[in-house]
């Protein structure tokens, strides 16, 4: 039996944008499902900000389509369901928390009891109820970030766009912000965030899209990306008690490989299966008369995927 596929919360198809000779977006296509947390990664100049601005309706794409909940972005109805939190603290710092929240609530079209309810919710959600009547300008960076976030969701959007939501905040505040985002996600809000913190993306998102030079170069879960790009092999690093006198031969004669470098006390290699191959490697080294000082096994991470796909060159 075939069930109709639900309309994605956000669908972007063949989005293109150029500034003169600079092609910021070259046909970006991806979807954000309802309730999904999608991390958007890319080196500097990859086109992330342009894409976010297009999604927020602040930049007009040269070509392509954006649909929010099945409706074109230009539709006023569609934009009611979009929340946008810019990278900067885009607040009125000379107003209080409550005044900022009320102002943005009104800008999003909330009135009277609905606004009151959302204000109470936002103050509780951010944990700033006791600081509701304090000027935002007197807050720490982390607290300002929380108010910044709350002002973008006063209207309970179905989709939330976050541009680097944790820039410049301490680990405790980051944790708090992600707890807040988890609550939103659990309530069904789809979240698209850009970040440079790969660990954040790895831990806090359901799916990752990597953008490079205006194009999507990877799209999927972390496991899928790892498998597609760097594979599932583990890196093993051994530190031995003295420098190698010659590289070590590993494997059968027909497909033997040499590992290690003469004169160095470290050996690195990749193995497919930790449970069998790691013990064999250790045994080999010991048989050759070397003592093992330290062993490190590293699974491929988003960091490896990112560098593998986008390269090691600086993009500044």
């Amino acid at each position: 039996m075939n069930y109709p596929r639900p309309t994605p919360a956000l669908a972007i198809h063949d989005l293109r944008k150029s500034y003169g000779d600079l092609h910021a977006l070259r046909g970006v296509t991806f979807c954000l499902e309802r309730g999904e947390r999608l991390a958007f990664l890319g080196p500097n100049g990859a086109g992330k900000t342009t894409l976010i601005r297009c999604l927020a309706g602040l930049t007009r794409a040269d070509h392509g389509e954006i649909h929010l909940g099945g409706k074109p972005l230009k539709s006023v109805e569609a934009r009611k369901h979009l929340g946008f939190v810019p990278q900067e603290i885009a607040l009125y710092r000379d107003l209080t928390t409550r005044q900022n929240m009320v102002a943005f609530g009104r800008f999003y079209g909330l009135r009277r009891s609905e606004l009151r309810n959302r204000l109470d919710w936002a103050l509780q959600w951010t944990g700033l109820g006791e600081r509701a009547d304090d000027l935002v300008g007197t807050f720490s960076g982390g607290m300002q970030r929380r108010v910044n976030l709350a002002c973008g969701v006063m209207h309970a959007p179905q989709i939330l766009l976050l541009d680097e939501p944790t820039v410049g905040v301490d680990p405790q505040s980051r944790q708090r912000i992600f707890t807040m985002l988890d609550e939103l996600s659990e309530s069904g809000t789809s979240i698209l965030l850009t970040t440079h913190h790969l660990d954040e993306a790895e831990e806090r998102s359901d799916r990752i899209v990597i953008l490079d030079q205006g194009q999507v170069v990877a799209d999927g879960s972390i496991e899928a990306l790892v498998k597609q790009s760097v594979g599932t092999q583990r890196w093993v690093r051994l530190r031995i008690d003295r420098p190698l006198t010659a590289p070590l031969r590993v494997g059968a004669a027909a497909d033997a490989a040499l590992i290690g470098t003469t004169g160095e006390d470290r050996i690195s290699t990749r193995i497919d299966d930790v449970s069998t191959h790691l013990l064999g490697l250790i045994e080999l080294v010991r048989r050759r008369g070397y003592g093992i000082v330290d062993v490190q096994v590293e699974a491929p991470s988003l960091h490896h995927v990112f560098l593998h796909l986008t390269g090691y060159e600086l993009r500044d």
């Binding site: 602040l58 009611k80 979009l82 810019p86 885009a90 800008f107 079209g109």
Partner: peptide, 8 residues
């Protein structure tokens, strides 16, 4: 930017 992304 933020204001213009609202209904204003």
């Amino acid at each position: 930017d933020r204001l213009l992304s609202t209904q204003m």
